[in-house]
Every structure is written in structure tokens, then in C-alpha cells.
Simulated scan of single mutants.
Amino acid sequence: MPIARRLLLSYLSITLLILLLLEIPLAIFYGQREKDRLSSGLAGDAAILSTYFEDALEGNSQLDPTAAEEYSTRTRARVVLVDQAGISLFDTSAGAPGSRLDAPRRDFSTRPEIAKALTGTRVVTTRPSETLNTDLFLVATPIASSGEVLGVLRLSLDSQEVAARVHRLWMALATIGVVALGLVAAVGSFLSREISRPLRELNESVQQFAAGDYSVPQRSPSSVSEVVALSDSFDSMAKQLAELIALQREFVADASHQMRTPLTSLRLRLENLQARVAEGEEPEVAALIGEVDRLGVLVGDLLRSAQAVESAERTRADLGEIGCSRVETWQAYAESAGVELLAAGA
């Protein structure tokens, strides 16, 4: 995997980890805070609404559920008012507005929050509702006068309201996380390319070096000290190797030039000798001239290699013919040493 992609994945992984460490506790805290805020809000609303019904429960005035109905319409909370026996006086979920005082009475005394509130204790709780198949936030506030409990006002709200608020927060946090990851991806992609660019250029220099070009190219400056040190080391190695190869080529070229003159002189002497040798010895001199020619070709190849003008051309050769010529060359030496040379298939 390219280093730029590794760096980008590292940036995204770190950002994602930070977002998870920050957003998950924040969402949990916000969800709990929403529940506490809802509970305290319902408790305050219940205390305010209960003042509207205190005189009516004492028998001093007629019960007016208008304030409770307006509150239920505004907050979608259910408002229930019961008397001392736990019998409903009105219920915002029973009947249409304006006719709820005439709705059938229900016994709420079996509800745990109502039963406890009738003892004079305010109840703020959450419990599941079997009829509604959901969890309810409940606040039951006793309405008392002169130490006597006259009734109970209960507010209930579906927990789905709080769940919807928490869900909206989760969606907002998720959106923020996605945007943050997108920004980090854009910035990280730019930074990773900038960081890896000197390495890519160094890799191109290595490939150029492997192809035989030992020159030191100009590369973009890097702020990473390790990359700078690696580039400097490579450039130093390339310079030293280029100098060594230049010295080697110079030596080979000089040696080749120095060997050409004596080889040419030796060939001329052998050609002159060939005209004066006894009959039957001409092949031996011709073989020596051939060896001198081969040595001249070898010296020429060394010179071309040193000058790096062109590579030696590949040609087809008859190995049998080469073998026979070698046997002829060394036959005299072999016979003097008592060794017989044979060329199979000759």
C-alpha cells in the first residue's frame, strides 16, 4: 500500500477514534440531561397547574379545565385531575375539549404514582404503560390545603418525545462527524501527498540510478528530517559510485589504448614472419595472427564498454567451429606435453 494512503488512513482512524470518544459520551450525557430536564419541567408545570384547581377542590369555585387543556395541546402531555379517592375529575385524553368534565369517571387510585401522591408526596418517575405499550414520564403533585390532600394532578408524557430529541442529537452529532471526517480526508490527502512526494522523487532517482544514470537530480525540499537524511545519503552514494565508475572506465579506456599499439605491432611482425617461414609452418603463423586479431577485438570491446557508446551486438556463432579452432591453436602445445586433443564431430 502506498505511504500516502497509509498516512491518510492513519489520519482518518485517529479522527474517527477521537470523534467516538467525544460524541458517544456527549450523546449519553445529553440524553440523560433531556430526561432530567423533562422531569423537572413537568414537575414545575404540575405545581403551577395545581394552583388553578385548588379553590375548586375546596368547593369555593367551579372546576375550569381550560388551562390544563391548553397546556395539553401545547405540550402533548396528558393531564389528569383526581379527587381524594383517586376518582378522575377530568382527563385531557377523555372526550373532546369543553366536554371532558362530563366524561365518565375512572378510578386512578390503583396507579402507584397516584396512590403515593394522595399521601402528600410529590412523585416524579418513569414507568411502562401496558395500555399504551410505551414508557411514560410521570409527575403526580398533591393538591393540599391546610395540611389536607384534596386531590392529585398528574402529568404524563410519552418517552418517545425525549427519544425523538435524543435521536435528533445523534443525527446532528453523526452529521458533524461525517463533515469532520470529510475535512480531515481532504486535508490529510493533501498532507500525505506532500509528505510522500520526496519519497516518490527519491524512488524515481533510484530507478534512474538502476538504469545507469548516476547524475543527481533536483528534488523538492522536504520538512521530514529522516527523508532529508535518506536523500542526502543516496546523493552521496550516487556521486561516489559515479566517480568510481568514471575512474574504472578511464582505466579500461587507457589500458585498451595502450594495448592496441603493441598488438598492432605484433600482428605486423607475424605477417612479416609468415612470408619467411619454412614450408608447412604457415598455418601455425596464421593461427597466431588469428589469436592476435581476437585479442584486438577483445580490446576494442573493452574500449567501447568503457566509453559506454553502445552495447556489444549479439551474433550467432558456430560452437563446433570455435572448438576446432581452439584445438588447432593448442594442438602443438598438447603434443609437446604428450596430450592428445580431439574435437568430437569435427
Results as ranks from 00 to 15, higher is better:
17 L>H: 11
20 L>D: 09
24 I>T: 12
24 I>M: 07
31 G>F: 03
39 S>R: 07
40 S>R: 04
48 I>G: 03
51 T>A: 05
55 D>M: 06
57 L>V: 04
68 A>K: 02
73 T>P: 00
73 T>E: 15
75 T>H: 08
75 T>L: 04
75 T>M: 09
77 A>D: 11
83 D>K: 05
83 D>R: 03
94 A>K: 05
96 A>R: 10
97 P>D: 05
99 S>G: 08
103 A>K: 00
105 R>Y: 01
111 R>K: 08
115 A>Q: 07
119 T>S: 12
125 T>A: 11
126 T>L: 06
128 P>C: 03
129 S>H: 01
132 L>M: 08
134 T>M: 05
135 D>I: 07
135 D>V: 08
137 F>N: 10
138 L>C: 09
143 I>H: 02
146 S>E: 14
149 V>I: 11
150 L>H: 03
161 E>Y: 09
163 A>Q: 12
165 R>Q: 11
166 V>T: 15
173 L>P: 00
176 I>A: 15
179 V>E: 03
182 G>T: 11
188 G>Y: 04
195 I>T: 12
198 P>T: 10
206 V>S: 00
208 Q>W: 01
208 Q>G: 15
213 D>W: 00
215 S>G: 11
220 S>R: 13
222 S>M: 04
222 S>H: 08
224 V>M: 04
227 V>N: 01
245 I>T: 05
249 R>F: 05
253 A>C: 02
253 A>F: 11
254 D>N: 14
258 Q>A: 14
260 R>W: 14
260 R>H: 13
270 L>C: 02
272 N>R: 09
272 N>T: 05
273 L>I: 08
275 A>E: 14
278 A>V: 03
279 E>D: 15
279 E>T: 13
282 E>K: 11
283 P>W: 01
287 A>V: 10
288 L>A: 10
292 V>M: 07
292 V>N: 09
297 V>E: 13
301 D>K: 13
309 V>N: 14
310 E>V: 08
311 S>K: 15
323 G>Q: 12
330 W>S: 03
331 Q>R: 15
335 E>R: 15
335 E>H: 06
337 A>R: 14
339 V>A: 15
343 A>W: 09
